[in-house]
Simulated assay, not measured.
Amino acid sequence: MEFRDLKSQYNKYKTEIDSAIHKVLADANFIGGEEVAILEKRLSEYVGVKHCISCANGTEAMTLLMMAWGIKEGDAVFVPDFTFFSTGEVVSFVGATPIFVDVDKDTFNIDTIKLERAIVKVLNERKLTPKIIIPVDLFGLPADYIEIEKIAKKYNLKVLEDAAQGFGGSINGKKACSFGDAATTSFFPAKPLGCYGDGGAIFTNDDKLAELLNSLKVHGKGDNKYDNVRIGVNSRLDSIQAAILNVKLTAFINHELDDVNRVYKEYTEKLKDVVETPVIPEGYISSFAQYTIKLNNKQERDTLQSKLKGEGIPSMVYYVKPMHKQGAFSENKYEDKDFEVTNKLCDTVLSLPMHPYLNAEEISLIIEMIKHVFKTI
């Protein structure tokens, strides 16, 4: 059994994927080919924004925005404590200070009440200048952008939606990657929409920002790549990955998002009285990058994971260490008591196999095994 079954996906779309790759090989147009332009247009239309700027990966997508917005030493950027390292890394990379904020115990996303408290605290200390909020659409569920955007407006902050895991999610019909001043996503293979390597994209309705980003991602180019008007980076999505993503995007739209939500409903219906299952607020749709349950304590979580492994059922812990305890951020001082929810989640969450190609037999096996384990512990 696969945790995220890319093999079944490939076998289903083998003809289309192989054909798309072979076309790029035959055309020998490997960088910036028509496949990239087609993908960017399709992605912007799907999300509902004016511009999609593809790049090398999701981390660089956020880094490019840090550069475009001039974020630097002395600036404060607010980041959820329970997330992947890169969301805080891009802040420190440009010399700014990540301010970690505890998360909501039900949605796993940034706690908006604690977010505002953190902003006020930074303002009162007068050591840093608040600049950006980076909410993360964790495990596929969009963050609470209704409240986040109100807070951002109140304190004159930008919002960068980190939708690395969230592509395909929505709030009242408004798609992930369309919130805030700009949004980013990742095409890492295991993401809801993934390629066969690294890839990422930025989404925005800001014409000038899009123009600047298209320059920054190609060595700060001006009219052409040999006219360099600013210092930039080399961060491009290659044509083969774009060709693969064009095939996968069609599958994602046609059935994959619906299929992962079918699996979510099956899991939740059968497990809700056994473990704490994911909470999806009314009006929200998750793209379920992960299906994450909560156990009562670390021992119970670790026992369940071990028993599942013994039966050939893979599972993962996202995340074993909170951001504020990462050694890379040790020069910043954080109070452990400010992260009560995150600290507990790191000890109690477990993600089960989740992808559009889970069949009824596999789902039933996972559910019955979890029920069996809880009869013995």
Rank of each mutant, 00 (worst) to 15 (best):
E147D: 12
V317Y: 06
K294C: 12
I231F: 10
D144N: 15
Y226T: 10
F187H: 05
I313E: 02
N332G: 09
D137P: 05
I244C: 08
G220D: 11
I99V: 15
A76M: 07
K191S: 13
F139W: 05
G197C: 03
L213D: 03
S364Y: 03
L216H: 06
P135F: 12
V91T: 14
E40N: 15
K150R: 15
S19R: 11
N228C: 09
P135N: 12
A37E: 11
E311D: 06
E269G: 03
L65P: 01
L358M: 14
F339P: 02
E35I: 02
L245D: 01
S306G: 06
D144E: 09
T268H: 11
I244M: 06
L65D: 00
A201M: 11
A20Y: 02
K121H: 07
V49G: 06
H255T: 09
A56V: 11
G33K: 12
L39I: 08
G199A: 10
D111M: 05
V341C: 11
N246A: 04
Q241S: 14
P278S: 08
A68P: 07
K309Y: 14
I367R: 03
T204M: 01
T204R: 02
K309V: 08
E2Y: 15
P135V: 09
H324C: 10
N254R: 15
A289M: 14
D338R: 09
K131F: 01
K294V: 05
N296D: 09
F84T: 15
H51W: 15
V229C: 07
T268D: 13
E282M: 06
